[in-house]
Design a protein around this nucleic acid. Structure first.
Lengths: 268, 268
DNA sequence: CCCAAATGTAAACGGAGCATGAACTCACCC
DNA sequence: GGGTGAGTTCATGCTCCGTTTACATTTGGG
């Protein structure tokens, strides 16, 4: 046994150092630098395995390193599962080069990511930084949109000071809409992003959940979720020209009526 | 100003995103993918230069990408400076491989980091994720044409600061015309491109929609959609020749008030 | 000035798309 | 096993808006 192994065991006594890993087994290429940095790895084969591990009371891990280079679908499923936990843990995703562009709309599923192939030192450095900053108040823990408040840590929601008693799917749907206020999402997009890519169900499900959300928001705020006919739904009175003032600086030599000067930053 | 510049100013799909960069100039290797992703780069040579830029009121940047591969000392100095700002901005650090281990003790100086050399797509993806998790609103994609503003994400439209309540087909038609300003489209072309290639319907449908659009644009802006007799419709360059359709039609021999410089050659 | 073609205008029909209420499935718990 | 609550699906009615149709108006050529 190396001295590194020994010190890891000594450290572990005082602090839990377990990282949840995917897939099972974790490729040695990444398992080794993590182990060398003093972490213990608990590999799981997917979301189901993680769930059963949790049910059996094995909840000691303090973070997750998910490798999505081989099975992106299962990796994303696992990410989504981990995000549902009452006590979310820092989640690091490893993706292949050609899939970097795919991350764009899935930012909510992970806290940090690596691009494979990567320098051995990067992985533990990134985990370290992740743990450091999750202890910091950098990340937003609430989403506010007008009278609407979503607490991402406690999975609570409120509107106009009143608490909203939302179910899980209701919360997830509202949260997703609220993370991109104003943007219109098709039902299909919502099913993919909120229900999951492996979900196959009717699009009317979205309608029903929107309806329940509106009911719980109350008549006063029901209009926060707007229907865009033939397209989908969006949250709220989107202020759709917040960048106009920046644009105006570059267009100050434009002539003619209706120029940026008299354009107001409107909110509807 | 060239005609190309004019048209670019009138119509653009904008993501106004200024990033502070170090060093000056930013290495093309990283500047290019960031520019390609729609960011504007403001390079500074160090903390002092950033400070003077701030004093001169140039505070438009919304994030910073600091490359520490060449001058780690100055880079760290710049990081510290940015951290002292009243309104902190997301800060991404680029370090060389052999310096990854150095980061451990400086976690507080940056929000995220990259290890050089890196995949070109990683940089914008990381910036994107950084903005997402720090709660920065991602700028919306809009099309502007004079007083007309179309928000592609929210399916909203406005004219001269006033919101336009458009139906789905109205919006799609206006959007298509606005993405090719000045170009004349036959009714058949519009039916194909806006309604769909498999659409079989009367050409008068276009007329009716144009009429409704003009009505909603208001008398002041109704001329934005111009009729070209025996041909079709176009979204006009009415800023400089609002009085006469005839003049706009005969662009070949025109000697009008706008001058040749303003004549837009760009018919795409 | 007249006529024909092209376009503007108004109204009405009909269907697509959505809200709504209720029933159904499934998991979990006492 | 009954009960409860969440998620999903189904059926129905309704509103909106895209399309058509008919008619008025404009345009341009002879």
């Amino acid at each position: 046994m190396s001295s590194a192994d020994l010190s890891r065991r000594l450290v572990k006594v005082s602090r839990a150092n377990d990282l949840l890993c995917f897939p099972d087994p974790m490729p040695m290429e990444w398992a080794r630098p993590l182990r060398d940095a003093g972490y213990d790895l608990l590999s799981v084969s997917g979301a189901a395995a993680a769930a059963s591990a949790e049910r059996s009371g094995n909840l000691s891990w303090i973070g997750a390193v998910i490798c999505a280079t081989d099975d992106m679908t299962e990796a994303m499923s696992l990410c989504r599962h981990l995000r549902r936990r009452e006590e979310p843990v820092p989640l690091l995703l490893i993706v292949a080069r050609h899939e970097v562009a795919e991350l764009k709309l899935r930012n909510d599923l992970f806290d940090d990511f690596c691009v494979a192939p990567l320098h051995p030192g990067e992985l533990p450095a990134r985990v370290e930084h992740l743990f450091w900053r999750t202890g910091q108040p950098v990340d937003q823990e609430v989403i506010e949109h007008g009278p609407l408040v979503l607490n991402l840590e406690t999975y609570q929601a409120g509107i106009g000071g009143r608490a909203l008693d939302l179910t899980y799917m209701e919360y997830q749907l509202l949260r997703f809409l609220a993370t991109h206020p104003g943007k219109v999402f098709t039902r299909e997009t919502l099913l993919n992003r909120v229900w999951g890519y492996e979900y196959y169900g009717g699009a009317r499900t979205v309608d029903v959940h929107v309806r329940r959300l509106r009911a719980k928001l109350g008549e006063e705020h029901a209009h926060l979720i707007q229907t865009v006919r033939s397209v989908g739904y969006r949250l709220g009175q989107a202020n759709w020209s917040p960048s106009s003032h920046r644009e105006a600086e570059r267009m100050d030599d434009e002539t003619g009526p209706g120029g940026p000067a008299d354009r107001v930053a409107l909110q509807f």
